[in-house]
């Protein structure tokens, strides 16, 4: 077929009066309301700023980890409870890479420090992506369409992965110190904002922007969004959705690896159980956001991050319960999550 390319795309001729998709602002408003409501409760503006930045940083790291999982579920109905193993692998790979680049992390130069961090992230993403490819082929593929078996075998996969990590790196906690120039805080007025958290927010926003671009502006992204809605129709149009799914699985695993590095640096230490610890949080996030929805996952992750930090400060005993409470409240309001994917 001849693809006639002209400058007058039909989009340009569409009448301006026809509205585009109406954006649902309510979940964003909820995010704003949580931020504002916490201000008087916390009392001090400087503490509020510190907590909010910490919450946003934590939320964005969780988003990076959870974004792949929500698409994997949306595309193929696969419940991957083993997602945590990619987080753990990413974090441990970072300890080795940054340990091996001790000269760079101990340097007083910001650029050398950042180079070490980014090198650790790239290697961790490659390792987690490679593990994701093997995980999909060996563990997930035999159990397509069988939810109970998926839960059991992916959890089993994570346990095996954790034990292998113990074999390679040992069972003990390993320190993952921040490079020299990323330690400490910026002090703005009375508020102190940890430097690393600013970096985490920046990386999180870049990943979010890239994901949105890929999903909305590329054909592969369109196929992913369409596949989340109706995979049978995508196949009937002549696209191999399995191949797309493997790509999404590998990309999601690599992002979890990146999230693992960021989470490890956030905690400044890693333990083999890091994946299992974060697993509950990421499932809460993708359920709150609406299964399969990337934007919902983003808003849900920020809500979870903020709630964890505010309640941790205001009422530490409630903090453990706060995210479950948040999930219950949101599901009472919107049973399909903040941004439900239609057709599901």
């Amino acid at each position: 077929m001849s693809a006639t390319t002209t400058t007058t795309a039909p989009a340009a001729t569409a009448p301006a009066a026809i509205p585009k998709a109406e954006f649902d602002w309510k979940p964003i408003a909820l995010l704003g309301a949580v931020l504002l409501a916490a201000w008087p409760l916390v009392g001090s503006s400087s503490t509020w700023v510190t907590l909010s930045v910490a919450g946003l940083a934590m939320g964005l790291i969780i988003f990076i980890i959870a974004s792949g999982l929500t698409l994997v579920f949306g595309l193929m109905d696969v419940l991957n409870f083993g997602h945590g193993v990619f987080i753990a692998l990413g974090a441990f790979v970072a300890t080795s890479v940054m340990g091996g680049m001790a000269d760079w992390t101990a340097s007083e130069s910001l650029w050398r420090n950042l180079a070490a961090v980014f090198a650790a992230m790239l290697v961790a993403m490659a390792a987690a992506g490679a593990l994701g490819l093997a995980f999909e082929r060996v563990i997930v593929r035999p159990v397509y369409g069988l939810h109970l078996k998926q839960i059991l075998i992916t959890m089993g996969g994570m346990i095996v992965g954790e034990e292998l990590i113990k074999v390679i790196w040992g069972p003990q906690q390993i320190a993952l110190p921040l490079p020299t120039t990323l330690r400490g805080s910026f002090v703005i007025g009375d508020a102190s904002i940890e430097k690393y958290r600013v970096l985490a927010v920046a990386i999180g926003l870049v990943v979010f922007a890239l994901l949105l671009y890929a999903l909305n502006r590329t054909k592969v992204g369109l196929l992913i969004r369409a596949g989340v809605q109706d995979r049978e129709m995508v196949e009937s149009l002549g696209y191999r959705i399995r191949r797309l799914f493997v790509g999404v699985f590998v990309a999601g695993s690599a992002l979890a690896g990146l999230g693992g590095v960021m989470w490890g640096l956030y905690q400044q230490s890693v333990v083999p159980q890091i994946g299992a610890q974060v697993n509950v949080l990421i499932f809460i996030v993708i359920i709150i956001g609406g299964l399969g929805s990337t934007f919902g996952c983003f808003v849900g992750a920020l809500l979870v991050g903020l709630m964890a930090n505010y309640t941790g400060y205001l009422a530490p005993k409630v903090a453990l319960f706060s995210n479950i409470g948040l999930m219950v409240a949101i599901l009472l309001w919107r049973p399909q999550g903040l941004y439900p994917v239609t057709n599901r």
Binding site: D230, T342, N343
Partner: peptide
């Protein structure tokens, strides 16, 4: 694909 625009539906097809 209800979440996609008419245009996006056509581009996929």
């Amino acid at each position: 694909f209800t979440d996609l625009t008419v245009q996006e539906n056509m581009v996929l097809a």
